[in-house]
Nucleic acid binder design. Structure first.
Length: 429
DNA sequence: TACTATGATTAATC
DNA sequence: GATTAATCATAGTA
């Protein structure tokens, strides 16, 4: 700090004409008649400069005071400030004026949406809930993951706010420091208030770019956390045994056309505590795997056929209740695909091997059930006249091409065995 | 640890 | 948009 006034003094202390800051005798050139004398003067000045640090504080203060009290000082500073504003500052201003940063706005919006910035609103629980729904898994696991997600998000939020606070504090401190410095310097060099203002805005801009990096990395952290959480859906969880049984029962009892309608899917999803898309996935996988290796699934098919037959027999043993067909796998509740069960069931039983006597026995029982059911159905108009027993009990729907149906398109509307009124007329009947 | 089973994903097809 | 076929990724098991 002390050097400036000293240098200024050495400049301002001499002539003002010509090149500002240079002593007149220096501007006149070195080659004159009295050149040696001038060299001597320059040597003296340099000597003064070199020894200025050796001067006492009082002497330095006196020189500084003299400079500040110089009658030309205010005028000189005003002129210089004016020139600076007209040249340097205006050029810088044109260069530094930037439109509001879109990227920063995006980051701010994202942080707000994720619950990192702004008021705490459960730490992105909506995102977690959505992810949980997407994963379609059971509640217990999801709630654990959910809380884990929230805890981690809260951690990110805390770090973000701590860092942000630090940045703001540092920015304020630095700004104050620079402003004080400039104010102090403005006593010895021309610094206009506008220049200070501009310097402050430059500092703010620099700090905001640092803040943007913080926001960027916070966003990245949230995205990583989120993707990791969402990836949990890839983490395969086997369906529970009951769910698998329900799905298998439906599949094998609709083996001729294992394409559950949308309603049936919803019903199955509800029963199995899984999502409709999981039901769709399951049937998609099951169909393809069954078709690829029927032999392997034969035993399973037999087992479920027998099981379904037993259920059907139990239903029939309840006398007139047979008029109100219930789901084979949930006695008492109005099933959504029970009637077709009976039809396909017999087909499944027919496919039993010779060593499956029980199944054959059951098959006979089921036949009577089927007859009864068909009677009821025909009365309610459930099946069309065109649907003969042969059609109902036709050999497995898988055709030579490996497709399931030749007549019916695999559609989610209604399967042949789930003819008009089959799915929902059950409940209405 | 290798193998199998199984739920999910993806591209192609209708 | 539903389905198929192939594939991935992971759970479960011997």
């Amino acid at each position: 700090m002390d050097e400036q006034p000293r240098l200024m003094h050495s400049h301002a202390g001499v002539g003002m004409t010509g090149h500002p800051g240079l002593p007149q005798h220096m501007q006149e050139g070195a080659g004159g008649a009295d050149g040696d004398g001038r060299k001597q003067d320059i040597g003296d000045i340099l000597q003064q400069i070199m020894t200025i640090t050796d001067q006492s504080l009082d002497e330095a203060q006196a020189r500084k005071h003299a400079l500040n009290c110089h009658r030309m000082k205010p005028a000189l500073f005003n002129v210089l400030c004016e020139i600076k504003e007209k040249t340097v500052l205006s050029i810088r201003g044109a260069q530094e004026e930037e439109p509001p940063d879109a990227q920063l706005m995006r980051l701010d919006n994202m942080l707000l949406a994720e619950g990192v910035s702004g008021p705490e609103k459960g730490g992105g629980s909506a995102a977690a809930a959505a992810a949980a729904a997407a994963s379609g898994g059971a509640g217990a696991d999801n709630s654990a993951e959910h809380s884990d997600y929230r805890a981690k998000l809260s951690q990110i939020r805390q770090i973000y706010h701590t860092e942000l606070e630090k940045y703001e504090q540092a920015c304020n401190e630095f700004t104050t420091h620079v402003m004080n410095l400039l104010r102090e310097q403005s006593r010895t060099r021309p610094i206009s208030p506008k220049e200070i203002e501009r310097m402050v805005s430059i500092i703010h801009r620099k700090f905001s770019s640092i803040q943007m990096q913080l926001k960027q990395s916070t966003c990245e952290a949230v995205m990583i956390l989120r993707s990791r959480f969402l990836d949990a859906r890839r983490k395969r969880r086997n369906f529970n045994k009951q769910a698998t049984e329900i799905l298998n029962e439906y599949f094998y009892s609709h083996l001729s056309n294992p394409y559950p309608s949308e309603e049936a899917k919803e019903e199955l999803a509800k029963k199995c505590s899984i999502t409709v898309s999981q039901v769709s996935n399951w049937f998609g996988n099951k169909r393809i795997r069954y078709k690829k290796n029927i032999g392997k699934f034969q035993e399973e098919a037999n087992m479920y056929a027998a099981k379904t037959a037993v259920n059907a027999a139990n239903v029939s043993s309840h006398g007139s209740q047979a008029n109100s067909p219930s789901t084979p796998n949930s006695a008492g509740s109005a099933g959504s695909f029970n009637m077709s069960n009976s039809g396909d069931l017999f087909m499944s039983v027919q496919s039993l091997n010779g060593d499956s006597y029980q199944g054959a026995q059951v098959g006979a029982n089921v036949q009577s059930q089927v007859d009864t059911l068909r009677h009821v159905i025909s009365q309610t108009g459930g099946y069309s006249d065109g649907l003969t027993a042969n059609q109902m009990y036709s050999p497995q729907g898988i055709n030579a091409n490996g497709g399931w149906q030749d007549a019916t398109t695999p559609s989610s509307v209604t399967s042949p065995t789930e003819g008009p009124g089959s799915v929902h007329s059950d409940t209405s009947n």
